[in-house]
Amino acid sequence: MFDQYDDARRAVQDLEASGVPHRDISIVANNARGAHKADAVASEAGEDAGKGAGIGAAVGGVGGLLAGLGLLAIPGLGPVVAAGWLAATAVGAVGGAAIGGAAGGLIGALTHAGVPEEDAHVYAEGVRRGGSLVTAKVEEDLVPTARRILNDDRSVDLTSRRAAYRNEGWNGFDAAAPEYSADEIEAEQERYRRL
C-alpha cells in the first residue's frame, strides 16, 4: 500500500525492471480526484475487466502494466484506476463471480489470492481513503526482490495504519459506507504525510 500514487507507480516500474512480468502485477489506485486519465488502451482494458476478462491479458505487450490503466468503479471505493490480475478479479467478484471473502470486490479478490481477511480490510480502506495498492504474483526466486520493492520506505506500514484506523473507531472496510470526496482524501493524505 502506498499513500502516494507516484510511489506506487515507481514500485510497479521497479517490479517490472526486476523481471516480474506485468501480467503478474496489479495496481488499484483511488481516482476520486480525477488525477489519473485512461487512454484508449486503458478504456478497452476496463471494458474487458467489466466482462470478467483479465485486464493484464487485454493490455499485454503494450509497454508495461501502467500503459493499461483502466477506469473502474468498485463498490465502497468509488472511482479507481486499475490494471492487472487483482483488478480483474475484483471486478469479477463485483459481477457475481464466486470469490472467497464475504465482502466481495477488492476484499474478496485479495482473500482469494491468499491475503488474510484482516489485512484485506486495511488495504481496501487504504484505497478508499486515497491510497494505491500494488500486488505481485512472483516466482520463488523473485520473492526477496519483490518484498524489498513493495516494503521500502515509500510504502505504508500495515500494522501502524491498522492501529491508526482503529484509533478512529474503524472496525473494517464497509462497501456500503459513503465514498471519500476529493477534499476528504486530500485531508487524509495530508494527515499521513505529517505522521
Score class of each variant (00 low, 15 high):
D152C: 02
Y192D: 03
E140L: 06
A58V: 15
L72K: 05
D7V: 03
K37G: 03
T111H: 01
E168L: 15
D157M: 06
L150G: 04
A82Q: 01
G130D: 10
L66Y: 06
D183Q: 14
D48Q: 13
E117F: 07
V12Y: 04
G172Q: 12
N171E: 15
G64I: 09
A163C: 06
E190K: 14
V20N: 08
A120D: 03
E118Q: 13
A177N: 07
Q189T: 11
D14K: 14
S181M: 09
D39M: 14
F2L: 01
E179Y: 04
G54Y: 02
Q189W: 11
A136L: 06
L142K: 14
R194C: 01
L77D: 07
L142I: 02
V80N: 02
R128Q: 11
K137L: 14
D6W: 08
R128W: 10
T111R: 13
L150Q: 10
A38Y: 02
L86M: 08
K51H: 12
Y123K: 05
E179T: 08
E168W: 04
Y192I: 04
A83N: 09
D39G: 09
V20S: 09
R193K: 11
A102R: 15
A88W: 06
N171W: 12
A82R: 09
M1A: 09
G76M: 12
A109L: 13
E140V: 12
R166G: 02
G68P: 03
G92M: 06
D152I: 00
P21V: 13
A53Y: 05
S43F: 14
I55H: 03
E125S: 02
G46Q: 15
E139K: 13
A164M: 09
A176V: 01
D157W: 08
T111W: 00
R191H: 05
G70W: 02
D3A: 06
M1I: 07
T159W: 08
I107V: 15
A53S: 07
A90L: 10
D24Y: 12
R129K: 11
A73Q: 08
E179P: 01
K137P: 00
G131W: 08
H121E: 12
K51P: 03
Q4G: 00
A109F: 11
L195P: 00
I107F: 00
R166N: 03
H121M: 11
A113K: 11
V94H: 05
A17P: 00
P21R: 14
G95A: 15
A164Q: 13
N167H: 15
E188Y: 04
A45F: 00
Y123Q: 06
D6P: 02
A175E: 05
S160W: 03
A29P: 03
E140I: 15
W170C: 11
D183N: 10
G56T: 05
E139C: 02
V94Q: 14
D183R: 10
E184I: 07
R154A: 01
Y123T: 03
A163V: 10
G126I: 00
V80M: 07
G105P: 01
A45T: 09
G100E: 09
G172V: 01
G104H: 03
A97H: 10
D119V: 00
T111I: 11
T89E: 06
V134R: 15
G104E: 08
V59H: 06
L158W: 13
I99W: 01
N151S: 11
A93Y: 01
W85Y: 09
L150F: 10
A113P: 01
G131E: 11
D6L: 08
V12C: 04
G95C: 09
Q189H: 07
